[in-house]
Amino acid sequence: MRALIAAATGLALALALVLLIGALGPSSGRTSPKPLLTTVPPHP
């Protein structure tokens, strides 16, 4: 019975955390002004 209560408590806390993060809204969406170096170097 203790395991069932612990599992239910953990599930409730996880759900509350997901709802809290969802309520905070998305991030600002800003990106770095510097481009990433993802190009392949030229072959010799």
Rank of each mutant, 00 (worst) to 15 (best):
P41V: 03
A23E: 05
G25Q: 02
L20T: 09
G22F: 08
T39R: 12
R30D: 13
P44W: 01
H43G: 09
S28Q: 10
A8V: 06
G25E: 03
P26H: 06
A7P: 00
L15Y: 10
P35T: 01
L37W: 08
G22L: 05
A23F: 13
V18S: 06
P35M: 02
S28K: 11
I5W: 11
L4V: 15
L37F: 07
I21H: 07
A14K: 04
S32W: 06
S27H: 10
L11P: 01
S32R: 15
T31I: 13
P41T: 04
G29A: 04
L17G: 13
P33K: 00
P41N: 03
L11R: 11
R2D: 14
S28W: 08
T38W: 02
P26F: 10
A12D: 01
T39Y: 07
G22P: 02
G25V: 03
T9N: 07
P33W: 01
L11N: 10
P35A: 11
M1W: 12
L13Q: 06
K34G: 05
S32F: 01
T9M: 09
R2H: 07
G22K: 01
L20K: 05
L20G: 12
S32T: 09
P35F: 02
A14T: 13
G29V: 04
P35Y: 00
G22A: 07
H43S: 14
L20Q: 07
T31W: 11
P26R: 04
V18W: 07
A14F: 08
L4T: 14
L17N: 08
L20I: 04
L36P: 02
A23I: 05
P41M: 02
I5N: 10
H43F: 14
L20D: 05
G22M: 03
S27D: 13
A16R: 06
M1S: 15
L24F: 13
L11S: 13
T31S: 14
R30Q: 14
P44E: 04
P42M: 00
A8E: 05
A3Q: 13
L4I: 13
L11W: 11
L15W: 10
L37Y: 06
L36H: 08
L15F: 14
I21Q: 09
A3C: 09
H43P: 10
L37S: 10
L19T: 12
R30P: 00
P42S: 03
L15V: 15
A8G: 08
A23Q: 04
G25N: 02
V40R: 12
V18I: 12
P33T: 02
P35E: 03
P42Q: 02
T9W: 07
L24D: 06
A3Y: 09
